[in-house]
């Protein structure tokens, strides 16, 4: 037997969660764009898309967030004010497993020796009701980085579509059980056929990691990254990319220190005020992104910094596919390159 949520009851779930005080967000279509946004009815949900354009990261690490305020009084005296994040309790309904899996991965860095209160206070306020993927596309690769289209990792409640179009419901942990208790119209039903996408394994992760260990210096990076234009598209749509900038903005008497998304792909990311740039060329910046995700982060914090959602692959304006690059590495294509390949005078 399993617990079943009839599809028609999704509307009741939205209403119940909203009346329990939650902001409910899910995939919403606006023209050509499907993003996670607030909904007031299940009818707002665009559940037919493979994946939203943006990730759920913005609910935990907003693209801009105040971390401190500085008020200067008439005499010029400054008071430093803590920016207290009081995040709204939020349920993400129709989250994807590759988004949900990103949060426990990023928890590691935000708890690394010191605790980032902003991340964890938002984290605490967010509940994930994930819908297992019934479909995938050629950019999906969760199964290549240890995930699965029906992985419960990171979720509080996992819904899996049945052949009849209803949802089999699974609560995960105390938070999940607590949340599921608010779902109206659940019933027991015999286990039914589940609709779960078959996401093929597209590369051998350990082979890719081995290739990265050997190929810090390789013409592969120049060949690969020559077309990269150095925008922040891939990192900003990524659910695991978490690098940030801290900037002071606002009027002189009420300035704010803000934490903003930042991208290792941009040339200013590492530029010293002296003019020295440790990563002067785009190939260095692209290498950093791949190395950080597949070598550095796992070796320091134990997890690959990628859930295989494929957003970076779809969003890249120059079709520089991370999936292709990591597949190439795993297939040993970087090892085989002659050192003169792709050589350009600096």
């Amino acid at each position: 037997m399993s617990r079943l949520l009839p599809r028609a009851n999704l509307e009741g779930v939205v209403a119940a969660l909203r009346s329990a005080g939650y902001r409910v967000v899910g995939p919403v279509r606006r023209g050509s764009l499907v993003t996670y946004d607030e909904i007031s009815s299940a009818a707002d949900l665009a559940l037919d898309v493979i994946i939203t354009r943006d990730s759920i990261k913005k609910f935990v690490l907003p693209r801009t967030e105040v971390v401190a305020r500085f008020n200067r009084d008439a005499a010029g005296k400054v008071s430093v004010l803590d920016a207290t994040a009081a995040p709204q309790p939020t349920v993400i309904l129709g989250c994807r497993p590759c988004d949900a899996a990103a949060l426990p991965i990023d928890d590691l860095v935000f708890a690394w020796d010191s605790t980032d209160r902003f991340w964890f206070s938002r984290r605490e306020a967010v509940r994930l009701v994930t819908i297992a993927c019934a479909n995938c596309d050629e950019s999906c690769f969760c199964t290549s980085v240890g995930g699965a289209p029906d992985s419960p990792e990171g979720s509080d409640v996992l819904l899996t579509e049945t052949a009849a179009g209803d949802y089999e419901v699974q609560a995960l942990g105390e938070r999940g059980a607590e949340l599921l208790a608010k779902f109206p119209g659940l019933r027991d039903a015999p286990a039914a056929d589940r609709r779960v996408a078959a996401v093929p394994q597209r590369f051998d992760l350990s082979a890719a990691v081995t290739a990265l260990e050997k190929n810090f210096e390789s013409p592969f990076w120049r060949q690969t990254a020559l077309r990269c234009v150095g925008c922040g598209c891939c990192t900003f749509v990524c659910p695991t990319c978490h690098c940030f900038d801290l900037v002071d903005e606002g009027p002189a008497y009420h300035s704010e220190r803000r934490r903003n998304w930042d991208a290792c792909q941009m040339k200013n990311f590492t530029l010293h005020a002296s003019g020295h740039n440790p990563r002067p060329w785009q190939e260095h910046r692209y290498r950093q992104r791949i190395m950080h995700k597949f070598l550095y982060y796992p070796s320091r914090l134990g997890r690959t910094l990628c859930t295989g959602c494929g957003r970076c692959v779809r969003a890249c304006p120059v079709n520089l596919s991370l999936l292709q690059v990591v597949s190439d590495l795993a297939a040993g294509r970087a090892n085989a390159l002659p050192t003169s390949a792709g050589e350009v005078k600096k």
Binding site: V109, W112, S114, F244, D245, L246, H292
Partner: peptide, 24 residues
């Protein structure tokens, strides 16, 4: 070593040289 840094506590992902974080 010095590198561009923002957080100073190993979160902002800016100062690493390979696996090593200059700040930590």
């Amino acid at each position: 070593l010095e590198n561009r840094m923002k957080c100073g506590v190993g979160k902002c992902g800016r100062c690493n040289v390979g696996r090593e974080y200059v700040c930590k």
